[in-house]
Design a protein around this nucleic acid. Sequence first.
DNA 1: ATGATAGCAATATTCCAATATTTATCCACA
DNA 2: TGTGGATAAATATTGGAATATTGCTATCAT
Lengths: 239, 239
Amino acid sequence: MPVKQKSSNDSRAGGPTIATAVYDQIRRDIITGVLAPGHKLGSTGLRERYNAGISPVREALNRLAAENLVCFEDQKGFHVAGVGSEDLADLIKTRCWIEEIALRESIANGDDAWEDAIVLAFHRLSKVPRSASSDSYEFNPDWEKLHHAFHGAILGNCGSPRMIAYCDLLADQANRYRQLAASISYPNRSEGDEHQELMNAAIERDVEKAVALHHAHLGKTNNIIMKSGLSLPEGQIAL
Amino acid sequence: MPVKQKSSNDSRAGGPTIATAVYDQIRRDIITGVLAPGHKLGSTGLRERYNAGISPVREALNRLAAENLVCFEDQKGFHVAGVGSEDLADLIKTRCWIEEIALRESIANGDDAWEDAIVLAFHRLSKVPRSASSDSYEFNPDWEKLHHAFHGAILGNCGSPRMIAYCDLLADQANRYRQLAASISYPNRSEGDEHQELMNAAIERDVEKAVALHHAHLGKTNNIIMKSGLSLPEGQIAL
DNA sequence: ATGATAGCAATATTCCAATATTTATCCACA
DNA sequence: TGTGGATAAATATTGGAATATTGCTATCAT
């Protein structure tokens, strides 16, 4: 029996595959916390949720598994990577180590265009509210995008594609914890100030100060979550 | 639909999935150079080669793509990640940065058990020939495994699962270049000496010396390939 | 000759049904 | 009550057919 798939002969040549589209969506849902840590990613549920067949869904999950955003066990299926205080500590520590290198290199290589990009990114970020709601914390995709761009502008001058890619991956992993921290600390933490100080130190080429501020910036997420006494929903950790 | 529940064979719980098995095989074939950089990874070819259906093969490829050992373009399929002098330079540079951190931490945390493990790993490595053939260089899986274990023993004490995992990934990526370097320099390079010096410095907790030796060890691959004037088969680079 | 384009072959992607495995349930029995 | 073990249900994995897309080749108009 011939089954009609999506017979859409639109003029545009076939863009991204379904697998890629689903990958993007699941990834976003994990990072933003829509899909909770530890949540089981069963075939049938995902098929409905993302309106796709099993194959592309599984391909997406396999990619995510390689990035450690998803865990899997052979024959047992997939689930969202868990979170935990130990994992958080390792993540922050690793980010401090890695991003310190990227920061030092970026500053060392910094030129006028680099400065301009940072100033621009900061300016754009400062115009967007931290939370989508003014009452309480709510994920704001615009802010997140600009925040990522700001830090990317600072570290992106390190000259190593690999380093940049790994920083991005770690940042994505950290995003899940950051959402938690934001919901705890909102609206008391003034990230704008932290960013401004960091920017100034970078532009002034004050390497040691920039590194110290950067470490503090990263450590804050950990401090907020740990101080809150909120116990993380311990689940399977990817690594 | 009636479901068949009679499983013919049993007594043994279903081990790794076919997808995982194929993943392991393709990965090894890429790292050892059996599958050349840039080589097209077409469905039909892989299906035959690894004797599996399309689904598991594609799942394996998706995992490898996320590790940057394989590249893909939507609707165009997969191919082995390319190599190139630029990529090699970035890889070596990144490894120097990252592994320096792991090395310093490992030494700082080092205790007797750590020393013992290094000595043991070195001893085992030294008993196995570099090349499977004495005439010319030939990939020797035993040596490779023990070599990996030796460096793992040194860096594995850094206390960060993420750091260790990333070091491993970088080492795997570098393996393809190392095979090339080995075939060029064999039998003139005495890696045994390099390893011994590194081991001694580590055990003596001579941090700066160990770091210097480690950098030199990593840089050697680059030097060998670059000095040989051998042009790398430029292909698509993963990153 | 050059460039455009339709038709066709090759390949990549996707859906789905068949199969394998795990998980839950029930029952016999100590 | 609790334990082991069969059986059924649920779920995960896989193979292959069906579909979509790309890339090639032949043909034609300029």
